[in-house]
Write a protein that binds this DNA or RNA. Structure first.
Lengths: 209, 209
DNA sequence: CTGAGACCTGAATCAGTATTCAGGTTCCAC
DNA sequence: GTGGAACCTGAATACTGATTCAGGTCTCAG
């Protein structure tokens, strides 16, 4: 229970390579198990078994179940942002960036099916972290949109934050529909529709005002 | 565990008014508790306490914890669709329908803060139901979009299903951001941006093809 | 009135599982 | 080679909380 203040006695990070490897094995197993079963169904026993270490070893690296989960959310957030940043880096039209960002996200979801379940669980298990995840993403996103507005690439009268959340919502919904349910990117019509939606939404209207 | 086939021994619905009232009290309490604490933190004891009935009474109306939860998800889905249908009924431009649908959704979220947590939990607790929830919404949504295309109100080259999921994603993301986090609808700029996004995305492009 | 459904009660049971702990084992600097 | 960090082990503990059940209480048709 004791979810008290900052405290949450961290365990010291392993110093030797062996220890680091073990910690990582646990983290990887945890991603699997949490993603498959959800936070509460996931048992420490199951995690350590898949990580191929003894039960007690878990508590060498994490003070409790909640802690691995938190680490996981942070790691997922970090990797996701990183991958998108890299993918987008040397594209200069914002709409193109958008489309590439989406595809990168979809591919990320493909490699981390568990992302959705993990984040969904986070909403109940670690609300602050959950919110942090989206705010973090939104912050960067909104910044990018503002820059694009300055360059006249997208409509100037859109609120960047609102737009950022809207676009994240689209990514999430289609990521679920396509990558989790269908398990693959859809045929051309759907993909092209996505681009048209984004383009229509963002591009400055020709004639208008 | 026994999540076996259809079976799931339903308890007979109450026949007397008293029984119906009690069942409903439990259902209402359950919505609160699941929404506040999440599926696993929610205890039957807490639910029955808030419903002001004894622990055992719960099992008179629901075979187990899972069953109330499922009922809840179905009820939420039903009410949501109903409210939006009604709100939209006598609006004839699809973009207007869209905007009104969004606002209706936001107000629904305001009255059912717990909707998000409940659905998030559903992803782990009752995946079939979770998916059913979105597919149900999407089906109706896509139908509406197709009709609007037939009337030339929105671009003909958009895939209705893709568009439906994209719009649901936007609603969800902004509902979370505005109604759950800020706890109120935002000022004009943001609201107007939403309309512009939707309008830009859906309306047939003037010049093009 | 009255008795048979229909409802309601809450202490007791019981299974699952997070966490602890009392010892090993590895590894390498000296 | 060896002592002490740094790691690792897994049975035992402790507790939480869903579900059961033996026995009331209400209510209204006849």
């Amino acid at each position: 229970m004791a979810r008290a203040a900052a405290a949450i006695a961290k365990r010291p990070l392993p110093v030797t390579a062996r220890g680091q490897r073990t910690r990582q094995k646990i983290l990887d197993a945890a991603e699997q198990v949490f993603g498959e079963l959800g936070y509460h169904q996931a048992g420490i026993a199951e995690i350590t078994q898949r990580a191929d270490v003894a039960l007690g070893t878990f508590y060498l690296y994490f003070p409790d179940k909640h802690a691995v989960f938190a680490d996981l959310v942070r790691a997922l957030n970090y990797r996701l942002r990183k991958e998108i940043q890299i993918a987008i880096a040397d594209v200069d039209d914002r709409v193109d960036q958008e489309v590439i960002g989406f595809e990168t996200f979809f591919r990320f979801v493909e490699r981390h099916r568990n992302l959705y379940l993990t984040m969904a669980q986070a909403q109940a298990v670690a609300p602050e972290l959950y919110r942090w995840h989206y705010e973090t993403l939104a912050r960067g996103y909104a910044r990018g949109l503002k820059d694009a507005q300055a360059k006249g690439q997208i409509a100037a009268d859109l609120d960047p934050v609102t737009t950022a959340y809207a676009l994240m919502g689209i990514a999430e919904a289609l990521g679920m529909r396509w990558m989790l349910w269908d398990q693959r990117l859809p045929a051309g019509i759907a993909r092209r529709s996505l681009r048209k939606l984004v383009e229509g939404a963002l591009r400055p209207r020709q004639g208008r005002r």
